[in-house]
Structure formats: structure tokens, C-alpha cells
Write a protein that binds this DNA or RNA. Structure first.
Lengths: 245, 245
DNA sequence: GTCAAGTAAATTGTCGACAATTGTAATTTC
DNA sequence: GAAATTACAATTGTCGACAATTTACTTGAC
């Protein structure tokens, strides 16, 4: 069967995705779900057979994945799925914390009324989840809560940087939901944060600090979780060595 | 003349650059220097003729430039050089400030003795430049000073994020050197920062704040400069409209 | 048995050509 | 004369093939 250019173009909600983009999406999911392990090499011919596309869109997909921070392209040697080391995890949190702290402070003055209402709803949903002891539900609303004030910061560069950061930290997305945390305590922090966001006279430095500390505090919990569970995309070998620099 | 694959590969210091990479470098410079204006479309056939390469490496170059934030690739429509608006500039500073503040605080404990010495030297060079009234020289050493504590933070993710940020803000690199600033005052701030970096008992929050404020303060100066001078890659049209969100 | 050198296979880099889409200008219709 | 339609040109998306390089394996020397 001969496949001609433009064939297989998928149109979803009036958005056109090139073959390269489609392939990148599938590969992203595969990497995130652990079907493709960290350190694995993405071989063009193999994927060419799998997806039935030529190498041009494949190579574009690789660039896409590289931009997302999921793979590393080494010239003349190939494309490799990134390994996440213990230090990568440790390094991730303070950066994310600093940026989300900033986002919260900016959101304080630029949040719309609608967004403020949405945040109240997400917080209420978090409280309900705590009551029901539903960790998965809690984290879903927790995520929505954070996204609300990030997007509400009104700073597209900041929003985009945080999005990239979250994407690069794929280990985060799949592990976060399952590690145990003091939900009650987490809920109270978010209640305080929202209080400050809604209070016109709030101290912005303290607001930032609150958000920042909340995120930084998660790192130890998270590391503890990672070391106990199997997570295919996190490198356990390097995990043992204390590389502080 | 027929050109075969692998021909024209350039080897610099044992690093191999593909054609795509080389093209991306040249185009980067062109965009930064304003030879290619913001909003311009990069047409493959045109550049193909100019560089004498086929479209495959060209398209890779485009992806490279997109990753650097210099262009935007719109599917089926083309690749366009990014426009920098007044709001882009305003948004850039707080993000950069937050991250550099964090970098300074991290550097406080992870800087090597060698790096501390280098920072002293850069600061001394800045002082000399102030005495000589040499703005260009001042900013060169100012840049080196900042890079020292950023790279000395020991957090590759942070270092990389800041590098990308600086790259995206190409307007910054070419304009910064020429806008007038109170060099004397700037020098004093950097002297205080270095003092704190060298003091084992320094208050890290204050150190962060100092760095952050120093960068944030620059935004008004910079905007003032931009509005007076011609800078080819900054969009003047949108510059006039107050878009706060 | 281990290391070095040479050879073959696998894989990436680049190319030119065709297909599909988008933008533009001429044409038609009201 | 303005708006819609159609035909054409310009441009991007995809393909398959060849060239160059890297990798793996075999062979040979010590």
C-alpha cells in the first residue's frame, strides 16, 4: 500500500496535526507510561515500521520530544529517552517552587473573579476528597488548583516555563498521585494560600514564601516514595550515589 | 555540482555540527543582529538557495530555532521570526529575577573557591570599567559575574532554564550594552552581593532578595531605552498599547 | 586469553521529487 | 462596484533512495 503525503492527517477540533506531531504524542505517552524505558534508544527504522510513516515526520517527532525534554538527540548516534536521576528530582523542586511562588504573587492582583471562584471550588473539592480519603481525587483537584493561579498570573512566559518544567518532570505526573501525603495538612496550606489570594491587603512576600515552601517540602516525601516503588523511567542505578556536585 | 551527504560537515574542537546545526547558528546570528526582522517569514526554498543545502537540514534548523525561542513554526503556514512586544519584555524580568535570586542562594553553599576568586576578579574589572566610564566593558564583566554564580549554583535544570530564557530574550543581549545605567550604583549592588556570597553566615533570603530586586529594577530603565532607540527585532506597533491582560 | 585491526551490518544524515495545502489573482455573478 | 468562485502559483508535508558514519563482529597477532 502506498501512502501519499497529507494522507492520515488527523483533524481534532479544527486543529490539524501533522504526522510528526501525532507520532510525538504517541511516543510521549509511551515514555510517560513506561512502555519505553529511560535510556532506551529510539530507532528510526523500527518506529517507521510501527507507525507506517517515513523518516521525515519521525525526525520531527524526535525534535518535538527533545523540546519537551523527554529525549536527548545525540548527533550521529541516535535519540535516547532521558534518564531521571535522584539529583534531577532534587534539582527540580526548588526551580518549580520559585516560579510557582512568583506566579501566586502575580496572580494576587491579576486573577479574575471567575478564576477566584474556580479556585474556591477546587479547594472545596480537595476538602471533600480529604474527607473521603480519596488520594487520587485530591491530587486531581490539587493540580487544577495550582493551574488556576499559574494561568491566572497573566505572564505567558512564566506559564510556559512552568508547563515545560512540568512536562520535563514526567516522573512527577505518574508518581505523584500514588505517593501518600498528609492530605489534611496539605489542604490547610492551600486554604491559607487561597485566603491570602482573596485578601486585597495580603503580604505578597509571605504568600510567595508559603507557596514556595509548600512545594519544596514535597521533595523529601517524593524521594522517599520513589525509593520504595518501581518506576520504570527513573534510574535506580544512579539513585544510590550521592552526587551533590 | 552535486553535494553528497556528510560533505560540508564542520568539525570544531572535536565537536561535529550537522548542516542543520550550522544553518541554525547562522540564522540565529542573523535574527539577533536584526538582518532578519521580527515577523519575517523564513522561506525554505529561499534559504535552500542561500545555503546550498536541501530542505531536511533546513527544517531541522527551524526546529532548533524554535527550541531557542527565536521563531515560531505554524503548521502548514510557515516559520516566522518571533516578535518581541513591550509586554514580553515586562514579563521577562520577574521570571529571570526569581530564578537568578534562587541561583545566588544556591551558589552560596556550592560555589568552589576558584569560582569565588573569579567573581572577585570580575567585580574588580567592573569597578575598573566604572572608573574608566566604559559601559561596554562594564556589561561584559557584569555578564560574566552573573554567569559565574548561575553556573555555580550546581543545579543544571536551573542553569539550563536561565540559558534558554536569556536566549529567548535576544533583544536583551544587543540592547543591554548600549543603554545607560548608573554604573556606580550597579557596581555597589554587585559588591554587596559578592560580600554576602563570601560570608558563610549571610542571610540567604536577603541575598535572594538583593539579586532579585537588582534585576527587576532594570526593567524600567530598559523599557525607557527601548522606546528611544531603534531595535529591529522589537515590535514598536504593539509597544504603544498597554496590554496588561 | 586479551587486545588490536579490519570488515560487515546497522543506523543516521542528506538529498531530490511528488503530493497536498494555502495564499493570490483573475473571473464570474449579483 | 462588491462579494463569492475558481484557477493558478507558491510553499509546506511526506516520501524513498543514497552517502557517511558509527557500532558490532570477526579475525589475527602477541
Amino acid at each position: 500500500m502506498r501512502r501519499s503525503a497529507g494522507d492520515h492527517i488527523m483533524v481534532i477540533e479544527k486543529k490539524i496535526y501533522s504526522l510528526g506531531h501525532q507520532v510525538a504524542d504517541i511516543l510521549s505517552a509511551d515514555i510517560l507510561e513506561g512502555n519505553i524505558r529511560g535510556g532506551d534508544r529510539l530507532i528510526e527504522q523500527e518506529l517507521q515500521a510501527r507507525f507506517g510513516v517515513s523518516r521525515s515526520p519521525l525526525r520531527e517527532a524526535f525534535r518535538d520530544l527533545e523540546k519537551k525534554g523527554l529525549v536527548e538527540i545525540v548527533p550521529r548516534r541516535g535519540t535516547f529517552v532521558k534518564l531521571v536521576t535522584r539529583k534531577d528530582i532534587i534539582d527540580h523542586f526548588p526551580v518549580r517552587a520559585a516560579l510557582e511562588g512568583l506566579a501566586a504573587a502575580l496572580a494576587h492582583r491579576s486573577l479574575t473573579d471567575l478564576e477566584r471562584e474556580s479556585m474556591k471550588r477546587e479547594l472545596a473539592a480537595m476538602e471533600a476528597a480529604v474527607g473521603a480519603g480519596d488520594t487520587g481525587r485530591f491530587h486531581a483537584h490539587h493540580l487544577a488548583y495550582h493551574e488556576l493561579f499559574i494561568n491566572g498570573s497573566g505572564n505567558p512566559l512564566l506559564i510556559d516555563t512552568l508547563k515545560t518544567l512540568r512536562m520535563q518532570a514526567m516522573w512527577h505526573r505518574f508518581s505523584y498521585q500514588y505517593y501518600q501525603e498528609d492530605l489534611q495538612r496539605s489542604y490547610r496550606v492551600h486554604a491559607r494560600i487561597l485566603d491570602m489570594l482573596l485578601d486585597p491587603g495580603a503580604d505578597l512576600s509571605r504568600l510567595r514564601e508559603l507557596v514556595e515552601d509548600h512545594i519544596n517540602r514535597a521533595v523529601s516525601n517524593f524521594l522517599h516514595y520513589v525509593e520504595q516503588h518501581e518506576t520504570s523511567h527513573i534510574d535506580k542505578t544512579l539513585t544510590r550515589r550521592g552526587e551533590t556536585r
